[in-house]
């Protein structure tokens, strides 16, 4: 890709979100009510900043795709304000600066990869070169293949190339790595990171939480049409493990599992312990100072066994944050 690297020395992989970077997209207090009465978004506000990868997570029906469609200008909010580069997302001038990858059931199958790329390049006054798109999407040698003859993963890569055709400043990627094998997925991750490092903004929706964990600078979790939590992947994991809001950001919690005779009341009095529960005879302790908690527990309970210490997984956090209760 011919990307402009404005601050090459600061292109640190997986850098934390930069709150100072200018906003590229803002959704302000969005409500979206469909004609059938379903309220998909209910007071949602979020912001995407320049040079970050943001993962939008949420259970099915949380309003993810509605939020993304609003940002793509494919639908209008019932109330609230959508701004992309400070302008209406439906304007051609806005669309010239965005790239979109959507779940497409069937693209025209009787066109060659080369022709699909040429078609999307024709929409932009200064598109990325066809060769750079083929390279970025790993489509070398497939240019003269008909779209209908490609494997699922290859089709997905063509759609990725189409999203980048206009050398966009803001890229929407909806489930970009569905159907890709591990190698192709890693290659696409590398491409997505290089977009970010070139100062572009990437919004990702994905069902693979490991993908959000590996790729995103910031995760926004939405549930029932609202943002329930946002932060770095580490912050989200901690928040989920400790119950939303219980732990200040920046503190790394650990999950301790073991069989112990110590009571829950006793454990909760130890410094750093946020919560305990029992599951099939084992005690699960969430602690923000796991080393001192463990030292104390081992000293008090000689019979303690079956010990495991884990970092909270994004999946657990996700389930905790979006639980319906």
């Amino acid at each position: 890709m011919n990307q402009v690297m404005e601050t090459p020395t600061q292109a640190v992989p997986h850098s934390a979100a930069r709150p100072s970077a200018p906003a590229v997209a803002t959704l302000t207090n969005i409500t979206k009510r469909y004609a059938n009465g379903v309220v998909a978004l209910d007071g949602l506000s979020l912001e995407l900043r320049r040079g970050e990868i943001v993962a939008l997570l949420g259970p099915n029906g949380a309003g993810k795709s509605t939020a993304v469609r609003l940002m793509m200008g494919l639908s209008a909010p019932t109330s609230g304000d959508v701004r992309i580069f400070g302008a209406d997302p439906q304007l051609t001038s806005t669309r010239l600066r965005t790239g979109v990858m959507l779940q497409v059931g069937r693209a025209p199958e009787m066109l060659k990869v080369r022709e699909h790329i040429a078609m999307f390049r024709s929409y932009y006054p200064a598109p990325a070169s066809a060769a750079s798109l083929v390279k970025a999407a790993g489509l070398e040698g497939l240019e003269d293949r008909l779209f209908g003859q490609l494997s699922g993963g290859q089709k997905q890569r063509v759609l990725f190339a189409l999203a980048l055709a206009g050398n966009p400043d803001l890229v929407f990627l909806d489930e970009p790595t569905v159907g890709l094998d591990i190698e192709a997925r890693r290659a696409m991750w590398a491409q997505i990171r290089s977009l970010r490092d070139a100062g572009k903004t990437v919004l990702l929706t994905t069902h693979y939480l490991e993908e959000a964990d590996a790729l995103a600078d910031r995760i926004i979790v939405i549930s029932k049409g609202r943002v329930v939590r946002e932060g770095t992947p580490a912050e989200i994991k901690n928040a989920g493990a400790a119950g939303a809001g219980a732990v200040s950001s920046g503190v790394a919690v650990k999950i301790i599992r073991c069989v112990t005779t110590l009571s829950a009341e006793h454990l909760l009095k130890m410094p750093g312990v946020n919560s305990t529960m029992t599951d099939e005879g084992r005690t699960i302790i969430i602690s923000s100072t796991p080393e001192s908690t463990l030292r104390e527990m081992l000293a008090l309970d000689q019979s303690l066994h079956s010990l495991e210490v884990q970092s909270p997984a994004l999946e657990d956090a996700f389930l905790a944050l979006t639980r319906n209760d």
Binding site: M72, G73, L74, T92, R95, L96, T98, V100, L102, Q103, V104, G105, R106, A107, P108, F120, Y123, Y124, L159, L162, G166, F172
Partner: peptide, 18 residues
Amino acid sequence: AADLSAGWLELKRASPMP
């Protein structure tokens, strides 16, 4: 109708194609 049902037209509409 085929382009619509497959989501292909949606992708094109999100692009700057007139």
